[in-house]
């Protein structure tokens, strides 16, 4: 006799467990172990993983890298906003994107089916890298440069929006990647 809020019977530790619970625990445990194995296996069987390559870097040094990268590969100014350079790096190369309040620079033009090493970092506070409409999301902080190897499998216009709150202009922070056939 008793409740969940009264002390249990003296023999609670040795009471047998009812069938409903035992069966459920077996099912739940099996599923838990499956999910654990599947998450590890996706690193080999899946094509969408973070490799977690990252470096510590001073924001000033990263800004310099982005500047040099932009100067080297700029092909035009963007039609929507002529103040923004569009940069077209060769396939397989390193690409540098910088987040700062409130923009992602530079704009990119890359090719479908080709692989790029995309570096992202922030020059001031934490920012979000959200690639739409793919809906791929990463975080960028100042002082850390992360590298994600990306191979677009679709062509068209892809927008980057910031989805880590970065100040009152957060909702105006945008960038863009054009993917050509």
């Amino acid at each position: 006799m008793g409740y969940s809020f009264t002390p249990p019977a003296k023999n609670w530790a040795t009471e047998p467990i009812e069938r409903t619970e035992i069966l459920w625990i077996i099912i739940a445990l099996a599923w838990c172990l499956f999910m654990f194995v599947w998450m590890i296996a996706w690193h080999w069987i899946g094509n969408q993983n973070m490799n977690n390559e990252a470096y510590k870097i001073l924001p000033e040094s990263y800004a310099k890298k982005v500047e040099d990268f932009t100067a080297k590969y700029t092909i035009r100014q963007d039609a929507n906003d002529p103040s923004l350079p569009v940069v077209s790096p060769p396939p397989g190369s390193d690409v540098y994107l910088a987040a700062s309040r409130f923009q992602w620079r530079p704009l990119l033009e890359i090719q479908k089916g080709k692989t790029y090493r995309v570096h992202i970092s922030s020059l001031d506070v934490d920012h979000g890298f959200s690639l739409l409409p793919e809906n791929i999301n990463f975080t960028a902080y100042p002082g850390y440069e992360s590298v994600i190897t990306m191979t677009p499998n679709k062509s068209g216009q892809f927008d980057i929006i910031c989805n880590e709150y970065c100040g009152f202009g957060h909702h105006m922070m945008l960038g863009r990647i054009y993917v050509k056939e």
Binding site: N80, L84, P133, I161, C162, N163, H171
Partner: peptide
């Protein structure tokens, strides 16, 4: 579909690169 959290204006009104 990618709508961000903590975001004031998902219409990006007046932005050249509006999504």
């Amino acid at each position: 579909l990618g709508v961000p959290r903590r975001h004031y204006d998902i219409t990006f009104a007046g932005q050249a690169l509006a999504h």
